[in-house]
Computed example of a mutant assay.
Amino acid sequence: MSRVPNTESVEQEAQRFLDQFDGYVYAWSADPEAVVDDAIIVGIGGTSAEMLMAGLPYAEPAASIYWPARSPANGAFGVGSEMGPWSVMEALRRAHFLRQRMDYERVVVTLEEAGIWRPEYGRLADQEGY
């Protein structure tokens, strides 16, 4: 039996992984020091209410991706990151792709402030915490 080579682009593969997680509920924290060792972490920041009240201009939320060291069956992965700025949707897609590739349990988010999350990003867990 011959094997058909994968002709899917990285973007197509990332979108396929994200589609599998439609309805995914993200664990989250507004504490930048919160520790999680089984997840790809998407850190999201942007213009806070305080910044707007101080007269600073609005900026779209941006994200970075990072992960803790892990040694799953498919290899060892050191602490790492893919620093942004990424759009939030691009970062979530990439995080799901990395989660699958690196065999992490889940994707979680760290929010600069809870109000920065938008419904189009997906669903946040009702309670803060990993």
Results as ranks from 00 to 15, higher is better:
residue 2 S to Q: 14
residue 16 R to W: 04
residue 43 G to V: 13
residue 102 M to P: 06
residue 116 I to D: 10
residue 59 A to Y: 04
residue 50 E to W: 03
residue 10 V to R: 07
residue 61 P to H: 11
residue 91 A to T: 05
residue 64 S to W: 00
residue 8 E to N: 10
residue 17 F to V: 12
residue 78 G to I: 08
residue 72 P to I: 12
residue 96 H to R: 02
residue 40 I to R: 08
residue 84 G to A: 06
residue 91 A to S: 07
residue 116 I to H: 10
residue 101 R to E: 06
residue 35 V to G: 00
residue 35 V to L: 05
residue 122 G to C: 05
residue 106 R to Y: 06
residue 8 E to G: 06
residue 108 V to C: 08
residue 99 R to W: 00
residue 10 V to H: 02
residue 79 V to K: 06
residue 31 D to W: 08
residue 121 Y to N: 05
residue 41 I to Q: 12
residue 87 S to Q: 07
residue 14 A to E: 09
residue 37 D to R: 11
residue 111 L to V: 01
residue 54 A to C: 07
residue 104 Y to N: 02
residue 2 S to R: 15
residue 106 R to D: 02
residue 98 L to I: 13
residue 61 P to W: 09
residue 63 A to N: 12
residue 10 V to E: 00
residue 1 M to L: 14
residue 80 G to H: 12
residue 112 E to N: 12
residue 13 E to L: 14
residue 76 A to R: 11
residue 50 E to I: 07
residue 68 P to K: 12
residue 68 P to T: 15
residue 66 Y to A: 00
residue 93 R to K: 12
residue 4 V to K: 15
residue 84 G to R: 10
residue 85 P to A: 01
residue 44 I to T: 01
residue 71 S to H: 15
residue 41 I to G: 07
residue 86 W to S: 03
residue 14 A to C: 09
residue 3 R to L: 14
residue 75 G to N: 02
residue 58 Y to N: 05
residue 58 Y to F: 15
residue 123 R to C: 03
residue 10 V to K: 03
residue 102 M to L: 10
residue 66 Y to T: 00
residue 58 Y to C: 00
residue 65 I to L: 07
residue 40 I to N: 09
residue 46 G to T: 04
residue 20 Q to F: 14
residue 79 V to H: 10
residue 106 R to T: 02
residue 48 S to N: 02
residue 34 A to I: 08
residue 25 V to K: 08
residue 20 Q to K: 14
residue 115 G to D: 08
residue 102 M to I: 09
residue 5 P to D: 15
residue 9 S to N: 04
